[in-house]
Amino acid sequence: MSESAIEKRTARRYKVLKGATIAFDGSGVSCTVRNLSSKGAALDFASSISLPSSFMLVIESEQFIRRCHPVWSHDKRIGIEFD
């Protein structure tokens, strides 16, 4: 198995498809949560976006709110870690 194929996450990810909003500076941007764990998530956006160093992830249908920060990005998908 190659080094890049080894899973490095410490928490199990769950595939999801949930509408969410990231909130910062008094505004919000819609996104889709593609996977979720107790430590972070992967978010898809309609277009490429530059995020601040800290923001809130809000999934209203789940009453889920977490402060987080971006850890990686690739095109329209951004990986976040919960603070």
Rank of each mutant, 00 (worst) to 15 (best):
R12D: 12
I80E: 00
F55P: 00
F64A: 07
R34C: 03
L36P: 02
L17I: 13
R67S: 02
E81K: 12
I6P: 01
P70N: 05
K8R: 14
A20W: 06
S27K: 14
R67G: 00
S30T: 15
S37E: 06
S54H: 05
S53P: 07
R12C: 09
A5R: 01
S30K: 12
R13S: 01
S37D: 04
S50K: 05
L17G: 11
E3R: 05
C31E: 06
A41G: 07
T21A: 12
T21C: 14
E81D: 07
D83A: 15
A46E: 14
E3C: 01
K39L: 14
S30M: 15
R67I: 00
T10F: 10
S2P: 06
T21W: 14
F45Y: 10
G79Y: 00
C68L: 10
S27G: 09
R9Y: 04
V29W: 06
S4H: 14
V33W: 03
S73A: 13
L57Y: 11
H69S: 12
K8C: 13
C68V: 10
G28V: 15
D83N: 12
L43C: 07
R12A: 13
E7V: 08
E3M: 09
S30P: 11
S4C: 14
S38N: 10
S48G: 10
I65A: 12
S37L: 04
H74K: 06
R34Q: 05
I59H: 01
I59E: 01
R67P: 00
Y14R: 12
V29G: 05
T10N: 11
D75F: 12
R13C: 05
G79H: 01
S50F: 03
E7A: 10
S27Q: 12
V71Y: 07
E7K: 09
D44K: 15
G40I: 02
H74F: 07
I22E: 03
L36G: 02
N35H: 00
E7S: 10
I22S: 05
N35W: 00
A42M: 12
D44W: 09
I78W: 03
I49P: 03
A11L: 08
K8H: 15
G26H: 00
S73N: 13
W72T: 01
R77C: 13
T21V: 14
H74C: 09
E7T: 07
C68P: 09
I65C: 11
A20P: 07
M1I: 05
V33H: 08
R66E: 15
Q63F: 02
F45I: 10
A5M: 03
K76T: 14
C68G: 10
R77I: 12
F64Q: 08
